[in-house]
Amino acid sequence: MSKKIIALCACPMGLAHTFMAAEAIRKAAIEMGYEVKVETQGADGIKNELTAADIRDAEIIIHAVAVTPLGMERFEGCEVYEVGLQEVIKNPKGIIKEIEEDLAQ
């Protein structure tokens, strides 16, 4: 089974950056050989919600948020990498690589 990345994306209006970040992470993760699931908290509410099992099984947990998202208690006790929305939209692979390097230490 391939390793899994999960992410949560949320931005002020929930119209654009949330979905751009979600897609950027999804594409990069797949190209890098990961299984991936991304929850969006946009103007259409919570989509693709991360479950306890998703969080338990994830190798890497990313929060790309510019607002405080709902359901933060799900991540208590987990190692969460917080990244900027703009950064992850521009350079998703670079950010995942940095996280990989950090985990390898």
């Binding site: 969006t40 946009g42 259409d44």
Partner: peptide, 23 residues
């Protein structure tokens, strides 16, 4: 440009599709 409404958000799906394409 979007409305400030909750629920009945079919237009958000359109906007989200466009946003996803912008990467």
């Amino acid at each position: 440009l979007s409305l400030n409404e909750q629920g009945g958000n079919t237009h958000i799906e359109l906007l989200a599709s466009l946003a996803r394409k912008l990467v």
